[in-house]
Amino acid sequence: MATEHEFPQAESIEPGDGRTVVVGLSGGVDSSVAALLLKQRGWRVVGMFMKNWEDDDDEEYCSSRQDLIDVMSIADHLGIDVEVVNFAKEYKERVFAEFLREYAAGRTPNPDVLCNSEIKFRAFLDHALTLGAEKIATGHYAGVRTDPAGSGRVQLLKAEDASKDQSYFLHRLNQAQLSKTLFPLASIYKREVRKIAAAAGLHVAVKKDSTGICFIGERPFKEFLMRYLPPQPGEIRALDDERVLGTHDGMTYHTIGQRKGLHIGGRKDGKGAASGEHEAWFVAAKDIARNILYVVQGHDHPALLRHDLKIDQLSWVAGEAPHPAWVYTAKTRYRQDDAACAISQIDGERCTLDFAEAQWAVTPGQSAVLYESRVCLGGGIIV
């Protein structure tokens, strides 16, 4: 049995003392090791496999069939029970419908953010509680703790492994959700997770990480969107002088900062290679009313740089907004270094963020997430 091995990483996890925790098992190495470590810490572990997409559930893009086989194998190896649940209706109504609305409006949403708040930590949590669970757990790289300052609130933390940190995608979680959640991988590096899985005899130790849209999988994205949002061709123009450079298939399929897939080439001014005549074009703006996609030439064009931005649909982990005069850091997209910023004003469900250094390709629909050191404060949607 895998639990015969002792893994010192488990010592940082809250002891279970026989209490029940329901672990979201995806069939990957992260959730499998999360379940393993929780069992070692004395939790009664129950696995739950969520099926949330049914429109074209085939092996080419959506691996749920193989993932379920892996989950059942892992559960048998760990000696735990597994329940399979179907949240396809909830996913389509709460996540995918909003995903399509945002793209249809010319914005670029992040479905993983909404998927976490509405499915993995709402529908999943609600169902787990009906099974008598004290807590739920996932294989996310993030942390949770009670505020050491004594406020009694629960804080969301960055993971120790900065290269895998997923707190950005979890910033909409509230106090009720976080107070019931365990993140067993909070202080463990990914390379150690795979070593633990291998030492425990879990066959998923070398399984490739899943990518692509939450629960839908990795697939040709433009082709996928075209099934739901038909093409609406329009002009591609240079922002600086309104020259028509080409045509696009629809605003839906383009995002701010995009370089590839424009099919308009580079500048040819006859001044030689040193002049940068083939400098790349980037999407800089969208005129939704006229269906015009505006582009600029050069990565550091001023139109791609912003010192301030507005966010709405605010969601604060603590249940209230941070102090507006303090300096924080923020990410305006995942895989971005933290950038120093301040909240200049909060007006109901909207606020303004002012950055010390200009931010590149700020994109409406993406999330701007604020941090105070390792603590994730929350954030909102860029407008």
Rank of each mutant, 00 (worst) to 15 (best):
287 D>V: 06
10 A>H: 11
251 M>P: 02
88 A>N: 13
1 M>P: 14
80 I>R: 01
187 S>G: 12
98 E>V: 00
47 G>L: 10
162 A>V: 13
191 R>H: 14
254 H>L: 01
103 Y>G: 00
278 H>W: 13
330 A>F: 10
108 T>E: 00
221 F>W: 05
37 L>I: 03
168 Y>P: 04
363 T>Q: 09
352 T>R: 13
198 A>H: 10
99 F>N: 00
275 S>R: 12
287 D>P: 10
157 L>A: 02
381 I>A: 06
194 R>D: 11
274 A>S: 14
297 Q>S: 14
251 M>Q: 02
115 C>T: 09
55 D>S: 00
282 F>V: 05
262 L>A: 12
321 A>E: 12
68 L>R: 04
295 V>W: 03
361 A>V: 03
267 R>W: 02
335 R>P: 07
216 I>F: 02
268 K>A: 07
31 S>A: 05
371 Y>S: 11
35 A>H: 05
29 V>G: 04
251 M>G: 01
321 A>Q: 11
359 Q>W: 06
324 P>F: 06
93 E>P: 00
333 R>H: 13
55 D>M: 00
29 V>F: 04
278 H>L: 13
57 D>G: 03
284 A>T: 04
326 W>G: 15
50 M>Q: 09
341 C>I: 07
362 V>C: 10
313 Q>S: 11
325 A>H: 14
342 A>M: 15
125 L>V: 02
254 H>Q: 04
379 G>M: 03
298 G>C: 11
47 G>N: 09
148 P>M: 01
158 K>V: 00
68 L>Q: 05
100 L>P: 01
315 S>Q: 08
39 K>M: 10
115 C>D: 11
81 D>S: 01
127 H>V: 01
4 E>A: 11
312 D>P: 08
247 T>S: 12
77 H>K: 15
372 E>I: 07
78 L>Y: 06
164 K>F: 05
306 R>A: 14
52 N>Y: 00
327 V>G: 15
284 A>R: 02
17 D>E: 06
308 D>Y: 02
369 V>Y: 03
155 Q>D: 10
237 R>G: 08
95 V>T: 00
328 Y>F: 15
144 V>G: 03
317 V>I: 12
215 F>W: 05
130 T>C: 02
381 I>L: 13
97 A>K: 04
383 V>N: 15
76 D>W: 05
189 Y>C: 11
189 Y>Q: 14
203 H>V: 04
258 Q>M: 13
70 D>Q: 09
376 C>F: 02
105 A>P: 01
175 Q>E: 13
103 Y>P: 00
30 D>C: 03
198 A>I: 07
265 G>I: 01
16 G>P: 03
268 K>M: 06
72 M>F: 03
71 V>I: 05
130 T>F: 00
323 H>I: 07
259 R>H: 14
65 R>D: 13
152 G>N: 12
340 A>C: 15
197 A>K: 08
196 I>S: 07
66 Q>V: 07
124 F>E: 04
271 K>C: 08
129 L>R: 05
40 Q>K: 07
243 R>L: 09
216 I>V: 09
327 V>D: 15
92 K>H: 06
201 G>N: 10
180 K>Q: 12
266 G>A: 10
26 S>A: 09
291 N>G: 07
64 S>I: 02
244 V>Q: 09
14 E>L: 11
143 G>S: 10
280 A>S: 14
240 D>P: 11
349 E>S: 15
259 R>V: 14
307 H>D: 11
138 T>H: 14
368 A>K: 03
54 E>T: 01
237 R>W: 11
218 E>T: 03
